[in-house]
Amino acid sequence: MKILVCISKTPDTTAKIAFADNNTKFAADGVQWIINPYDEWYALVRAIELKEKDPSTIIHLINVGGADADPIIRKALALGGDEAIRVNTDSTDSFTIASQIANVAREGGYELIFTGKETIDYNGSSIGGMVAELLDMPFVSLATKFELAGNMATITREIEGGEEVAEVNIPVVVSCQKGMAEQRIPNMKGIMGARTKPLKVVEPAAVEALTSIERFELPPAKAGVKLVSPDNPEELVRLLHEEAKLF
């Protein structure tokens, strides 16, 4: 079986969010880059678990980005995965990114395509659904569990106030979130091995972007916390009722 795991490069979860060039670009200076946590902890680790169960499984990683993504791709390869493909283009338009992934996937004949449920930078939750449609494959989003028996995948997904269990034949595209797997730390053997695993760089296909970022903005600063004395918590209830009118 062949699995494709989509890997995005995002700022670290603690990175300071600021913008440059008249608020049209993310200020990347001094920012530490990581594998998007949903891609790493859930999509990639679940794929690795499937390979551990069935060692004939082949895992490919794909990233759409510039050479500055190579360190996080190597880290992903250190966790697991047989080889990586980087489509050499920078874009913030999800349709462009999904189209590049779909182009590679079409050639690769993958039975499973995993993505994280969203990236922690653009929070679009879009790539998996777009890739599925472009490949005419079923899509199951926000998955918390994934089991495979023969060609039948049993997938648990989040719904409002609970979960839903669905069955679907592979090939399928799945967006993964908490519950799918547990975060792993790469070991020394993995890190050494990752150095020699293939990282193929391919040039992008021509795709017209459907959206563009006009400008970023930061939320207005909070006015500051209104502190209520611990001896008089009743005052807090009064404020929430009369001032904030919440109940």
């Binding site: 969010i17 929070n123 972007a209 959206t211 563009s212 970022i213 006009e214 970023f216």
Partner: peptide
């Protein structure tokens, strides 16, 4: 729309 996990907003043009 909200971006960077609620830490900022982006104004996106649809073409």
């Amino acid at each position: 729309k909200g971006v960077f996990s609620g830490k900022a907003f982006a104004n996106i043009r649809i073409n």
